[in-house]
Amino acid sequence: MSSTPEVIVCDPKPMGLLQRLYVIEVLKGLGVTLRHFLGNVFRRTYTVTVEWPEVKREYSERLRGRHILVAREDGSPRCVACYMCEEACPADCIYIEAEERDSDSVEFEKRPKVFEIDLLRCVYCGFCVDACPKEAIIMSRVHEMTFTTRDESVAGLDVLLQKKPLRKEDMGYRPYYGKPHSHIELPIPVKPGGLLG
């Protein structure tokens, strides 16, 4: 493109006398901060602080938190140890050891003997969820985790396997089948308060 694009020249004007005097502009600036201050004291007009931990911010249904291994009705993992998530993981933080499922079951297939995710290695990209062909691994909205040792962070079947029926508010990132789930809560809810309530 040889023609120059439409431009706005936003060179500043030279400082006028009022600006050179400095005090007036600074007072105007102080007016802005005073407006915010008084607004917050009386009505919390500008307050945005989420008062964690008393008030927990609702993240969307797509939040990528700690993983959940979805269970079958009999409580065993739905996972068939196909290693697809292990392969898809950019951090190589998933470790699976497979074993044969009981031979007398109807579906003669594999299941994970060991399924470990290093939660400290994990980058929570959700690619394991995308990769799973059985919808056996999904992500929860559990994102507040802390550990005191490195060993503690390796979560096995005992931590990851779903134990009670999944409620909607537990589940995070998972397949959506094209439906636009999730909603955006704006402004971020804040506890009302201030001197005038």
């Binding site: 993240y59 969307s60 797509r62 939040l63 990528r64 980058v123 929570y124 990209c125 959700g126 690619f127 992500m139 995070g172 990132y173 999730s182 909603h183 955006i184 809560e185 704006l186 402004p187 971020i188």
Partner: peptide
């Protein structure tokens, strides 16, 4: 607040993939 939008679309606040 823009983070809220990104998070609701993608699932992550900063590193959205």
């Amino acid at each position: 607040e823009i983070y809220s939008i990104l998070e609701a679309c993608a699932g992550g606040r900063l590193t959205i993939s």
